[in-house]
Amino acid sequence: MNPKLDSAQLGVAVRISRIDWDQMSHDEGRRLREFGLMEGIEVTPLHRGSLFSRDPLALAIGRMQVIIRARQAAMIEVASTAP
């Protein structure tokens, strides 16, 4: 099974290989796409949660940073960017 974004290492860029659109609500999926989170895009997980929780997850996409929940990150499969 491919690694998912919710367990990806912080500070290391990964490429989104597949997003399980069927598992998320219509609005959730649309907002993800509006943030530019799509198959083939490179993202870097930056921060994960605080003192009491491993949720949420802050990501860098291009020049933008966005916050999503771990639940959504678990629907995003990623692959290493190494050639």
């Binding site: 605080s50 003192l51 929780s53 949720d55 949420p56």
Partner: peptide, 19 residues
């Protein structure tokens, strides 16, 4: 403020709210 929301989200999620 968005950072504060990020830090608080974990706690607020436990009662069904969000940051």
């Amino acid at each position: 403020m968005t950072r504060a929301a990020f830090l608080m989200d974990g706690i607020m999620a436990k009662v069904g709210l969000s940051g």
